[in-house]
Design a protein around this nucleic acid. Sequence first.
DNA 1: GCCCGGTACTCGGTGATACGTTGTACCGGT
DNA 2: ACCGGTACAACGTATCACCGAGTACCGGGC
Lengths: 108, 108
Amino acid sequence: MDDLTEMLKGTLEGCVLEIIGGEETYGYAITRRLNELGFTDVVEGTVYTILLRLERNGFVRVAKRPSEMGPPRKFYALNEAGRAELATFWAKWEYMTSRIDKLKEGGR
Amino acid sequence: MDDLTEMLKGTLEGCVLEIIGGEETYGYAITRRLNELGFTDVVEGTVYTILLRLERNGFVRVAKRPSEMGPPRKFYALNEAGRAELATFWAKWEYMTSRIDKLKEGGR
DNA sequence: GCCCGGTACTCGGTGATACGTTGTACCGGT
DNA sequence: ACCGGTACAACGTATCACCGAGTACCGGGC
């Protein structure tokens, strides 16, 4: 699939929130997960900027833990604000997709 | 619905393409149409920048015609390249939404 | 005749976001 | 000792939607 970057703006952060909401995890693993999901072009640099933004905005709690496979990992988990943000994200997603699907169906 | 601007990036242009694809129309009317559709915050300035971009990228043919309700209007219609671009847009949209819905359903 | 609101388009600048690149650093296998 | 995989951070870049100001055409009310 060719370039999705513009279309992912505003939604990729939501995807990361959803992944973190599912289980406590870390940047490198999140990138792999997104790649498996089909977002093959998403690179680590992108995910880390999102994670730093989430941290700065107070949506996550962070714990640094050693790894057996390399350097230490920063594990992220949603806090209360993060769960609220995730809920608004899905609400917006639902709203937007329904309108666009309506437009696609030739909705007058 | 609160701010959708980030989420609309990359898709709003596709919406405009779809609207133009339906019938030859002009900027002001496209804005009204988007507002009716539910994208209430989309303003004229945004639509005009998209239209100029479409023109610059050779996706539309343009015809200026007088109006009985004010200044002359610039009518836009899709050309061959525009129809192709619209098709790719919907392909990307389909691709992206399916992946994200899978993520939402907890798809492993 | 004059202003005002609605119609219609253009242009310059702003902010947010994903991406590219580079750099740092830990680790195991050869 | 080197290399590839793991793991994070920081810089700059491009694109896009938005905002604001400006220009201009038109009809109706005063």
